[in-house]
Design a protein around this nucleic acid. Structure first.
Lengths: 121, 121
DNA sequence: TCATATAGGGCTAAATTTATCCGTATTGAT
DNA sequence: ATCAATACGGATAAATTTAGCCCTATATGA
């Protein structure tokens, strides 16, 4: 497992949240788990752009950060389920608001991103 | 300027927000600008862990993404001011909620991060 | 016997992001 | 003449994150 070389300082709440939510797929993982897609395979179907590997990595981090809980059923073929911890649940309203904001400004944001992505040629 | 090689797909509002807010210092920049620290030098003082260079890079991105507006005053020594665009302003409530969540769970989060950072030795 | 379903992780490569270093510019004060 | 204040960005290095490839494991059913 990779470990950071640069020391981290967490000055304020915003920093702390940044640290645990910073990851390309994390917020979406939380979102989908909350929606009931609780098995690894289901999550992969919801986020096909990500490889299974990365999802595992990020799920592990979410678990270490105590936002989700993993249950491994001792059956074959293997079965795993994730669910939000209490702490994780308290994040859901925030995630939903962020999503709503994005939906509300979707058109505008797409234009903006289109423009800036074009510039980079 | 760096340009991305991997194609991006934005499936939902959450994706779009992710794209424009993903950056180590962006949320804090928005936060501080909203608090009235509108000049580059002031922002650097508020975020001393970041180099001036990176702040510039991220400020530029925020500007391109139309979340902030830059005013260059033609004086010497140079003077620059940033302020939130209307779009940027609509993000503030979200950012504040995130910060509040972080503050509320500060102790818990520090413990969690301490643990996970220790593991990585 | 072989594919299928299911989930995991090591290792390495590539992409992306962040940090460092250094050079530019100008006025006014020492 | 030099330095401080103020701000910007190119080029490159380092750190970090994400992706790709490949191997493990086992019961069931074709």
């Amino acid at each position: 497992m990779y470990h950071k070389k640069r020391a981290q300082t967490y000055d304020c709440g915003l920093d702390l949240v940044g640290e645990i939510l910073y990851g390309k797929w994390k917020i979406r993982l939380l979102y989908f788990i909350n929606e009931g897609h609780i098995r690894p395979g289901q999550l992969q179907k919801k986020i096909p752009e990500a490889t299974r590997r990365v999802l595992n990595v990020q799920l592990n981090e979410l678990e270490n950060h105590e936002l989700i809980l993993k249950t491994i059923f001792p059956v074959l073929p293997p079965k795993v389920e994730y669910r939000l911890t209490e702490l994780g649940q308290t994040l859901i309203p925030l995630i939903l608001s962020i999503g709503l904001w994005g939906d509300k400004h979707e058109e505008r944001l797409r234009e903006i991103l289109k423009k800036t992505n074009e510039q980079r040629q």
